[in-house]
Design a binder for these strands. Structure first.
Lengths: 342, 342
DNA sequence: GTTAGCACTCAAACGGAACGAGTGCTAACA
DNA sequence: TGTTAGCACTCGTTCCGTTTGAGTGCTAAC
């Protein structure tokens, strides 16, 4: 016995119905609403086969059937093959981003917000992870008599700053001179190279040494921050709208995974080279998310950096719609974050 | 009939027990566990009086009594009068902040994290709201041939930046010259003054005009950002650990208030001049939070700016502990964020 | 291969009985 | 006059048996 066209159509119908209603689907429902040519008894036979093949589960003997993760996998693969992105989704996103570009972090938070409100699931946006970022400019800005702000601009346009102590006798011009020198020596180098250069530099004066180590720390910070990637999570409470999470225990374990962002980051960092990723239930590898699906897409920042956006919802997710929204949003972000022409 | 010392003791006992167990307290419980000198019948009479006075509610006739918001109010006022802050809380916080100071935003997120984990409620930290912030320095940093980064440093140490377009013929030195000029002219002025000055400046060249308007926009941004205040919310899912939120509907409405941060910001901005604020149930003014209490405290950044930290939990909150933690955290933040000596 | 029919299963909904925590009231007591 | 023992009463909770109905598997006929 194997999967034929009719079995596939029936499976599709079951999945569609279950995604819509969240209640186990019976043979009569399919016979009446979908495959009108066949009687419920026939459907029953087919469903029995599908169960044997591993595509359907039965909560208990007198309930209908529920799609298994394997079924969703088949369904999604089919969806990805035909690769449809709805025009409506693109329009919706364009509308939400009509206002002018703001800071990177705002964009990220905003994007997660839009994902959540368009899909009614939980929206995730991870900031780009820098691969081999290079320093473009480094500048010291006086803050008070004894301290200065170090600003680092990288080729990705990422800016990071911190306050360090400098000598008392540094005026703005002196700081600028130092900035020029540092930019000249470190510009074009990667972050780790820059740190090595600083470490190697002989510090003739104690004060200067102090300053350099402050800068070095900042660079390390940037490296680490970019290595990790910031994560915005919006719409966690949406999950409570779905009947499968009316059990408080389930909801709690779901929410605590989303709050402790580490594991989530780990998931988002996998398969970053793929345009789309769909992980269904157990495929996430996180037991607490075994009733959830995670759909991700990628956006680019410049040529070498890419970030990830995603949506988490119940396994019976509207995959088509979510894929559409994510695709459109990915394009939008790539376009929005394109570095100025050089 | 009025409140005498014994009634007060009994009320205190009821509140203590209810905070601990979350189940309505019966007269026998009080008689056995607390006021051992009195029989349950006597307690019953007193409880009846307390109910008449508005301090107790009865879910239904055959259940025990539950403290009313008015009772918590009395309880908290008493607590505030004796103003006790536990040493253990101070130590706990100091421990969590042992690592070096990082960026303002990190500190805020981290503080919310610590509040949440020490209290097991939801932790809130709002960034300082700038009153009359003054510009200390303004600097243009080259980013690419045609664009530059504007960095603004204010007297509160707040740094904000954005990328603007500049003319093609601007090299680093030219930008620096402009920076010096701008700093000279705008330094010491408040944000709104600075914007007025820029608006008034006659722009001889088109390019310069473009640049100035970019800077002006950034200043407006800083004003607005600081006017609003950023808000970190951590530990929302903690609420699900409490039996009063085992009802999914309640949990959902609570969580959605926390997600749409606007109303929360409004609450936190009220009474910012108070060292401590306790708002119990209906006192919050938000219907969805009528079973919650919000406790806030203030920290300072410099002399003129203050931010708010807070904890949201069920009305039967461990007020003493929360006040202790918030007090200690407020001091910690004030100390941590003290601007460098000038 | 398809379908009608039928016996069977089992979760969910329903409903009444028993339980028990807690109250209010009254009368007796110190 | 305040305290307490006693008792009737209330009412939510729990338990348990019944009914309902959706859905299945199997068999026999088409």
């Amino acid at each position: 016995m194997s999967m034929d066209a009719r079995k596939f159509r029936i499976l599709q119908a079951i999945i569609d119905d279950y995604i819509l209603t969240a209640i186990p689907v019976g043979s009569r429902t399919i016979s009446k609403k979908y495959e009108t040519g066949l009687s419920s008894a026939t459907i029953r036979n087919e469903m029995s086969d599908l169960e044997e093949l591993g595509y359907l589960d039965q909560p208990h003997v007198s309930a209908g059937r529920v799609p298994s993760p394997k079924a969703y996998r088949l369904y999604v693969d089919q969806l990805l093959k035909q690769g449809k992105i709805s025009e409506a989704d693109v329009a919706g996103i364009r509308e939400h981003f009509s206002d002018r570009v703001r800071q990177m972090e705002d964009v990220i938070g905003h994007a997660a917000q839009v994902l959540s409100s368009l899909t009614h699931y939980t929206g995730l946006v991870m900031s780009p992870k820098g691969v081999e970022m290079r320093i473009r400019n480094l500048q010291l800005v006086p803050v008070s008599a004894a301290s200065a702000l170090v600003v680092i601009v990288t080729d990705g346009g990422i800016v990071r700053d911190t306050v360090i102590r400098v000598g008392n006798d540094m005026d703005a011009d002196a700081l600028y001179a130092i900035s020029r020198m540092l930019t000249e020596q470190l510009g074009g180098h990667t972050l780790s190279e820059a740190r090595r250069l600083i470490a190697g530099a002989s510090a003739d004066v104690q004060r200067k040494q102090e300053m350099l180590s402050g800068i070095s720390e900042l660079i390390a910070d940037v490296e680490q921050q970019q290595g990790k990637g910031k994560l915005a999570v919006v719409g966690t409470s949406n999950i409570l709208n779905f009947p499968e999470y009316s059990d408080v225990e389930k909801a709690k374990s779901f929410l605590s995974v989303l709050e402790g962002k580490e594991r989530l980051l780990g998931l988002l960092e996998q398969h970053q080279e793929m345009a789309f990723t769909v992980r269904i239930g157990p495929e996430t590898g996180i037991p607490e998310l075994s009733d959830c699906s995670l759909v991700t897409a990628t956006y680019r920042l410049g040529d070498h950096q890419h970030g990830t956006i995603g949506v988490i919802g119940p396994t019976r997710m509207q995959y088509g719609h979510v894929l559409g929204v994510l695709g459109a949003m990915g394009d939008m972000l790539t376009q929005l974050l394109r570095p100025e022409k050089e």
